[in-house]
Write a protein that binds this DNA or RNA. Structure first.
Lengths: 199, 199
DNA sequence: CTCCTATGTGAATTATAATTCACAATATAA
DNA sequence: TTATATTGTGAATTATAATTCACATAGGAG
């Protein structure tokens, strides 16, 4: 069997994807260079041809995740225009994304990702901030168009929106997938929407 | 200086407390037997006189946390009786507890605590479940007394209640304490309460 | 007071993983 | 076709922390 030599761009993607999959199944704790390498089909030391360190590999995983999250938001905003439709669709898509990738909320919100790494923490903060701003904008738009009450703070709502998804994802994971995220999201959404609607 | 020899009960508490404080400042990643020992004023190997392993030490920290959380809930239920007053007070107390102990949400909800430890994961699941049930009960009582709408599912609400606290705590931490948790809780609470109140 | 047990000490020992390095094989540009 | 840079390999090397162990000492039971 001949040794495959692939472009570093390709490998970087393969590695980031493999790392994410590994985190999905074994968690951050189970993430080792050796296992990632095995999944990609190369030898551990070869990882270092494509990433300077394990840390930079993790950065790549974070980028992967945020790209998808933002993609969900942007695509949704292309597809629908009513603010409630948008939020609902984002919610649904996020749930699906998370069900396929257990790890996402745990990676993003788990301190092991950034503890002792000021730079990454700041980066993560910026990315989450950007995400929340997007959600806020949708809400502001809704207020502008008189679909959403004007006496609520868009930023607060955007964090509460996160509060529909994240705790549910955590419970789902910790309960060994017994907690029904989709059903919860459905019920919570109803209440959430109603509480924002203009009388 | 003479060597202090303390009862293992006392040491276990000291160690659990020291571990928790350490996690507050340096995160799970920074939690080492050596550092804990130093804080307690003993030598690393001495830890093993009081805990079989690092894992069991972490278990003790978890117990510490849940004891306090439950304590908040129970004390609140002793002090107030109106369901909204109860929830509001629990919210306030949790926020205060979390501000004093950054680590709490990150410990409870961080996979590093339970990944690869089925037993602890199950235990954590039970404890969180018990907590949510308590919150649910308060809501059911409110429904019974006609303060809270009856067309909402108490379990859903209890998870949404978590959704007020947890994302805020995470944002506070990741933003290097720039995010104003207390203010968010205040605003979110207003919306939350209103959405549950009987018309 | 004296023994005995519980606790503490410091120096190994282990375990796990990241990282480095010298060497090999492949692709590609000329 | 053939240099040359890039990518891959496998065997060290390092780093970090948990854990063990033989020995020391305080403090209560008798």
């Amino acid at each position: 069997m001949s040794i495959d030599k692939l472009d570093t761009r390709v490998r970087q993607e393969q590695i980031a994807q493999a790392a994410m999959n590994l985190i999905n199944t074994t968690g951050m704790k189970g993430l080792s260079i050796a296992k990632v390498a095995k999944r990609v089909g190369i030898v551990p030391s070869a990882i270092y041809r494509h990433f300077e360190s394990k840390d930079q590999m993790i950065d790549a995983v974070l980028n992967l995740i945020f790209d998808r999250l933002m993609d969900n938001v942007l695509k949704t905003c292309m597809a629908t225009f009513d603010p409630f439709d948008r939020l609902k669709l984002i919610l649904t898509r996020h749930i699906r994304l998370i069900l396929d990738n257990h790890a996402i909320p745990r990676i993003i919100f788990s301190e092991e990702v950034y503890s002792g790494n000021t730079h990454r923490k700041a980066k993560l903060n910026r990315k989450i901030g950007r995400y929340l701003i997007k959600i806020s904008e949708i809400i502001q738009q809704g207020q502008h168009e008189n679909h959403i009450r004007k006496d609520v703070d868009p930023e607060t709502i955007s964090v509460m929106f996160l509060g529909i998804i994240h705790p549910a994802a955590i419970l789902w994971h910790i309960s060994d997938e017994a907690f029904d995220v989709a059903k919860h999201a459905e019920k919570a959404w109803r209440i959430f929407k109603e509480s924002l609607s203009t009388a």
